[in-house]
Design a protein around this nucleic acid. Structure first.
Lengths: 116, 116
DNA sequence: ATAGTATATGAGCATGTGCTCATATATTGC
DNA sequence: GCAATATATGAGCACATGCTCATATACTAT
């Protein structure tokens, strides 16, 4: 009936408005995408699946992935800032582990998906 | 004992080797990261959460997200190639929907995570 | 204190990504 | 057939990302 303030073409107006009502808030979308983006890199996924089994230090992860310790450390910082991993100091060594069981769940479900 | 062929520093050799044994195959890591990468973008997440409630056509999604239909179409192609969405034609209109319930599950778990 | 080990961090570079714009294809109604 | 609608696609550009290299910090052992 009314044309709203939007000039773009819409075929199913009610459904668009219904979807807009139930849509997630922008801040939630932003945090979700950050979380998934963190999981969307082979190196970080390898780190997370390894930490899913057992805590590990930076140099072990570097050896496991055969990438530099610097690269691992940068990735761990990213994973730490969005609370996917945490660390615990023992002397000079920092042991990293998953901060949350959700990560394991996410990877398990995604694995189900790609295995059809 | 032996030094292997690797010169890098390792603190916990057994754990690294155990992790290497249980690690996912490279192809699986690659597919997992592609899947999560697809979820790691605000526009695509909005598309997927909308399709989680109801199938929609390109122009409706464009109106919902207030981005161009071209941009939506490009994103849908990406999501189609990794089997996150499928489409069904009705005349000139293509209706997109989730190809799989896993997507909803992934988003639900990630939401739990960010809501702590 | 000093040297060595373990990790963190900033700058910079090569590659990837998400958009736009222009153009192509598919379907419908005349 | 032709015009209009709905979507797809290729090229190109601005920006993000993952690495490396150099350097800084934190802790241990002497």
């Amino acid at each position: 009936m009314n044309k709203d303030q939007c000039t773009c073409r819409i075929i199913h107006k009610e459904q668009v408005e219904a979807a807009r009502k139930t849509a997630l808030r922008g801040s939630e979308i932003e945090m979700l995408s950050q979380t998934f983006k963190a999981l969307g890199d082979p190196s970080r996924l390898r780190i997370l699946t390894a930490l899913g089994k057992h805590e590990m230090c930076v140099c072990d992860l570097a050896a496991l992935l055969t990438i530099s310790e610097s690269a691992v450390s940068h990735q761990l910082r990213l994973l730490r800032t969005i609370k996917l991993v945490k660390n615990r100091r023992e002397g000079a060594v920092l042991y990293y582990s998953l901060d949350d069981t959700h990560v394991n769940d996410l990877i398990a479900i995604a694995l189900e998906h790609i295995r059809e």
